[in-house]
Write a protein that binds this DNA or RNA. Structure first.
Length: 498
RNA sequence: GCCGCCUUAGCUCAGUUGGUUAGAGCGCUAGAUUGUGGAUCUAGAGGUCCUCCGUUCAAUCCGGAGAGGCGGUACCA
């Protein structure tokens, strides 16, 4: 059988890991971003925006994997042979900006920034290749007061968008403390030859909440095989080295002083470790003095963050409530943001150490959480008032009605299609129009317009089964003089917006 | 990257032991109803059965490769 000669049409589809965003989400997201922006503004941070892509080397040096510069990042070559990359976070562009404008900036420089970032990775549940972050950073001071403030800011921002206190927690740890524990275990954390092992240890600890103590122990030792048969190489630590690390990550019980005392003994005489504990103590004291107790911020040694550029305190914002997903299963949202101190990031441009600390909110995931909580506003889902075109000859009249409504600040539109009245009614219904405006020959002759309340009409329809009755009763309609249109529509709208 | 499952209409899915015309429900368009969104009845439109290669007289179905989706795992700046 000869195949029919069909025209090859392009398939309407989006590349994987990308998605379109509809009206409802745009409105809700916009409200959310406004709320966060408001908090950051109140804290004295200044807005900044940078382009979507930068020269690859300006972003790329932060890449842990130098062998494959294209892995994880979207890059393309310009005509002059230089490579540019889409930004994968907002921190690397900030480092570039600060370095480029260093002399003109008031230091410490505090800025906030939001926008999409792109990652060329395999998408997963709730993970996309384009998503939005909202960052706040303080650049140019090593004062732990800056770190403490970042934590307050993160907590306030999350509460402002509608996550109640108790449903989230900002967890704080310090890389230096972990390094101290490593040091007492006989591993020099700053020696370059141990860098890989140190990161493996960090990643293992990062998985504590998912794999438990046993799983982490395996990853710290020889390695671990998961259910799907995939094998993860471990950090090859000896059992006597693993034990103190497990004690360390499990040291989150008790109040601040208890935890600090425990950490102090775990880091032993490691100078770096003691320094880290002292930083945590100061941050904890500042937070407590500002009224941020452990219902909002807490020290948790299991928080490490995957990044290797963090040099001191690290933070993670976690949602602690469970929601029920579409499939009825409980969904934990987990981490919705994170950050920490990165004293080395600007140095790679400037050659001088410019200490910095910051926090990044993953607004896309936060939005999903809000949606699950039912906290996104759906009130704005009401559509416009629709002016029906009963007779195309009088389009100008309908346009005039629409203009009058718009002038009065009422969201409205004249039907701009070419279908008949029934289709226009269906259209208005689908748009969730609160009411439609009808002016046919009868109304025009009387100098009137008919206003049909669709919300009320829909309620009445459930009581009517006979179609003839439904059509003839013309429920929820009123007729008013043409010049009373705006006032009458206002009163209809007022009924439903109560 | 690795492992598993999946891909048939806009959506959810049947089905063909390989054979001429691939179905249902919902949705969509329209008519019954000269000007009324719901309900009811009727009709209509809509398909490269994911793609390519192979086996075959013949492939949506069998074999191989690839793409895409879902889930896990790894990575996550």
């Amino acid at each position: 059988m000869a195949k029919k000669n069909k025209t090859v049409r392009p398939k309407a589809r989006l590349p994987r890991g990308l998605r379109d965003v509809g009206a409802h989400e745009i409105r809700a997201m916009s409200d959310m971003l406004d709320a966060i922006r408001n908090v950051y503004d109140i804290y004295g941070f200044e807005p900044l925006d940078t382009p979507a892509f930068e020269y690859s080397d300006a972003l790329g040096k932060a890449l842990p994997d130098q062998d494959r510069p294209n892995a994880g990042v979207f890059s393309f070559e310009e005509e002059d042979g230089q490579w540019v990359s889409l930004r994968y976070d907002l921190t690397a562009p900030l480092a570039r900006y600060v370095s480029e404008n260093y002399d003109g900036l008031a230091k410490p420089f505090r800025r906030y920034q939001t926008g999409p970032v792109w990652r060329n990775e395999k998408p997963g549940p709730g993970r996309y290749r384009q998503f939005t972050q909202f960052d706040a950073d303080t650049v140019g001071t090593d004062n732990v007061a800056a770190d403490a403030e970042i934590c307050m800011l993160a907590a306030d921002a999350i509460e402002r968008i509608g996550i109640p206190r108790g449903d989230y927690v900002i967890k704080i740890n310090n890389r230096k403390v972990l390094d101290g524990v490593l040091q007492t275990a006989g591993i020099d954390p700053v020696a370059p030859e141990n860098a890989e092992q140190r990161m493996t240890v960090l990643r293992a600890i990062d998985k504590l909440d998912r794999l438990g103590r046993e799983g982490v122990a395996l990853l710290l030792g020889a390695g671990r095989k998961d259910e799907s048969g995939d094998y993860t190489k471990g950090a090859e630590l000896a059992p006597e080295q693993i034990a103190p690390l497990l004690d360390f990550v499990s040291a989150s019980d008790g109040d601040l002083d208890t935890i600090l005392t425990r950490l102090r003994s775990l880091v032993g005489d490691s100078e770096r470790g003691q320094e880290g504990v002292e930083e945590l103590r100061q941050i904890g004291a500042l937070l407590a003095a500002a009224g941020f107790e452990d219902d909002r911020v807490r020290i948790d040694p299991a928080v490490v963050r995957g990044l290797d550029y963090y040099t001191g305190p690290v933070f993670e914002a976690e949602l602690t409530f469970e929601a029920t997903g579409d499939d009825g299963r409980a969904v934990r949202f987990g981490s919705v943001g994170g950050g920490g101190r990165y004293d080395g990031l600007v140095a790679r441009f400037k050659g001088v150490v410019v200490p910095a600390t910051g926090f990044s909110i993953g607004v896309s995931r936060l939005y999903a959480a809000l949606e699950a909580l039912g906290k996104t506003n759906s009130a704005t889902a009401t559509g416009p008032v629709v002016v029906l075109v009963m007779d195309p000859e009088h389009t100008a009249d309908y346009q005039a009605m629409t203009r009058d409504l718009r002038t009065a600040g009422i969201r409205s539109e004249m039907y701009v299609g070419t279908s008949g009245m029934k289709a226009q009614m269906k259209y208005a219904d689908k748009r969730h129009a609160p009411c439609v405006i009808i002016q046919g020959d009868d109304e025009r002759a009387a100098g009137e317009v008919t206003i049909k309340d669709l919300v009320e009409g829909s309620l009445l329809s459930t009581k009517i089964e006979d179609n003839k009755e439904w059509r003839e009763s013309r429920p929820a309609q009123i007729s008013v003089k043409r010049d009373e249109l705006v006032e009458a529509v206002k009163s209809v709208l007022a009924r439903h917006n109560g």
